[in-house]
Nucleic acid binder design. Structure first.
Lengths: 193, 193
DNA sequence: CGTCTATTTGAATGTACTCAAAAGCGGTGG
DNA sequence: CCACCGCTTTTGAGTACATTCAAATAGACG
């Protein structure tokens, strides 16, 4: 639990009381590899912090998966579209490893905010990070070649290569697993010559 | 100016005083077709409302443009990454038609918020819309074919076909103008048969 | 050890890309 | 009002690259 609070104090400027109040609304949740925390249609009435493990969220359209992103230790995540407006989520959240998560439920968080307005800026920071991430991905997806997308992604997030399967990375990049496999061999060949 | 206030009242629940205070910080700005409102490196210390006209924002990477999105009458826009954190913007904002805009400068907005906290939710709604737009685009870009992307975009935003040049739409879709031209002829051929 | 899934490799196909040229269109100035 | 210029869009041909389908290999897990 310490890692959540450490991260919180990096994000916002809160005193002892506030930090304890935050701690009190955290709900520990463990989830095994390949299990889902959320499936399409569920309400994402929580945000989550990853103390241990790794997750991805993805969309399912006509039976094809499209991975939106991966998250690792010390990352926060929520489907804001569902979280903020109470709409059913379009996303699926899956554990790619055994995970130890801390959930922050919306109802608890709202109570917390009403008592300690400082946590408004927490939400804002989360949203801003989300915008930043989505913006960067958008840029990359529209003007880079597949190989460039892969190299950029790996550079930006090296953990992904170690810990995430090729097919999930391919799904994130919007290409077929076979293509990513060929891209990888091409890269290693080029780096040797 | 009425259109701004009409739109504002659709977004948040504010009384007469608040609405007047908001009106008072609006700054009218006209800009001609093909002129830039912002170029990379500028600080986006304002949000804007489009009373008349149409703009796009785009990134420039290695001399290649990638259009992020288009905005029309009654749309709001800001580069939040720059606006919120005072960082230089990576974006370029260009008028695609003669425009009549209302700018909301950050400093004015912050004063407004400190006096009328209701405008906090205005900002949040703007951010949520941004997240929604970026999320939708991300999904579309990674799992649809180029033709599907085009059809989806046109369906979602028909104005774009009427008012935006093919090359800019192509730049939004992440494809070459020649390809979009061929996609269009393919579509009209198919719809005839 | 055996099964199931993930990854690699191959061959054929399809689609978008580049480069080049022509046609269309809008705006300007004579 | 017309002629010209620049830019956009279309069309063509050839190339490059990703896709599909199929099969083989490698790895993970019970």
């Amino acid at each position: 639990m310490q890692s959540v609070i450490t991260d919180l104090s990096r994000l916002i400027d809160c005193n002892e009381n506030e930090s304890i109040a935050f701690k009190n609304i955290l709900r520990l949740k463990t989830i095994k590899k390949n299990e889902h925390l959320l499936v399409e249609g569920d309400f994402c009435n929580f945000g989550l912090f990853i103390a241990e493990g790794c997750i991805r969220y993805y969309y399912l359209v006509d039976g094809v998966e499209s991975t939106g992103n991966f998250f690792f230790e010390n990352d926060w995540y929520a489907d804001f579209e569902s979280f903020l407006y109470g709409k059913p989520s379009l996303q699926n959240i899956e554990a790619l490893e055994d995970c130890e998560l801390y959930l922050v439920y919306k109802s608890d968080f709202e109570k917390l905010v009403s008592e300690y307005p400082v946590f408004n800026s927490f939400l804002r920071i989360m949203m801003e990070r989300t915008i930043k991430g989505l913006t960067g991905r958008n840029m990359a997806m529209s003007l880079l070649s597949h190989e460039e997308r892969y190299l950029r992604f790996v550079k930006y997030c090296p953990k992904v290569v170690e810990r995430v399967s090729l097919k999930h990375i391919a799904s994130y990049l919007g290409i077929q697993p076979e293509s990513l496999s060929r891209i990888r061999t091409r890269i290693t060949l080029n780096s040797k010559s």
